[in-house]
């Protein structure tokens, strides 16, 4: 017995509504963030992650209110990502009731930002979000590269090296998304997940591709992830968090039941 593996539902928020797209297109409305957050909490979610998918300044304002409202009713850790570019953005989200922020594009454009954020607020609240895509050809050794702007913009950065560097700079956790798998429902990119999880000393959340409960188990058992994140399988009530946890427990994974 010991530390439990975590299940983290992700709420993609646009204009104060939870939405879910497939590969960042075909956005479907999934409901009110506060109501959904309460439902996940009641079902046994270990944490919640809110991603502002447009990251515009109007949306940021809306997100602050969403976080404030959720934090007054749901007493589990909350992570907020999307458009976190300045130390003042982090301060505002933490004051609103977030426990962690996920930094993505801003880390790529200026890696020192992660260092400054970790020094100011502590590593425990700095999550670096990594969007990686497979770039090696078949037969070549596997290589993944960091992409920004919802997977549209290549950066030339090697995903494993980047993850290690971000941890060195003070990231307390890595949120890893496979852009090849995101929204596909065919399962995590296990090789990518394992490569990152084994390379860094901090916890890694696996994301991108979950379509059924066995995928969650695979992410932990084969991918070595410390936590698994999924959106659509929970939003549209395909599975409940409680079901996911029971499935994981049956496979011998330690979970909080």
């Amino acid at each position: 017995m010991g530390l439990a593996k975590r299940i983290i539902p992700c709420l993609d928020v646009d204009k104060g509504r939870v939405v879910k797209g497939v590969k960042f297109v075909n956005i479907r409305d999934a409901g009110d963030p506060v109501e959904i957050a309460k439902r996940y909490d009641a079902e046994g979610a270990d944490e919640l992650t809110f991603l502002d998918i447009t990251a515009s300044s109007d949306n940021r304002e809306t997100m602050v209110h969403v976080v404030e409202e959720v934090a007054g009713q749901v007493f589990i850790p909350l992570t907020v990502g999307g458009g976190i570019r300045e130390l003042s953005d982090i301060r505002r989200m933490l004051n609103a009731g977030a426990d962690k922020v996920a930094i993505n594009t801003a880390a790529v454009s200026r890696p020192e930002f992660v260092k400054e954020a970790a020094e100011r607020f502590g590593s425990q609240c700095i999550v670096v979000a990594i969007d990686a895509k497979l770039v090696s050809k078949e037969g070549e050794p596997r290589k993944w590269e960091i992409f920004t702007h919802g997977g549209r913009k290549a950066t030339g950065l090697d995903a494993v090296e980047w993850a290690k560097r971000m941890v060195e700079y003070g990231a307390g956790e890595i949120l890893l998304t496979s852009m090849d798998r995101d929204g596909t429902k065919i399962g995590f990119d296990i090789e990518l997940t394992r490569a990152i999880c084994d390379a860094v000393s901090v916890p890694v959340i696996a994301s991108g591709g979950v379509g059924n409960l066995d995928h969650l188990v695979e992410g932990i058992v084969k991918g070595h992830a410390d936590a698994v994140l999924a959106a659509s399988i929970f939003h549209f009530a395909q599975y409940s968090i409680a079901q996911a946890k029971r499935c994981m427990a049956e496979k011998g994974i330690e979970v909080r039941l």
Partner: peptide
């Protein structure tokens, strides 16, 4: 190998 920080739900 155990990750540090110790993060999550423990007994």
């Amino acid at each position: 190998k155990l990750k540090v920080p110790h993060m999550g739900w423990n007994q």
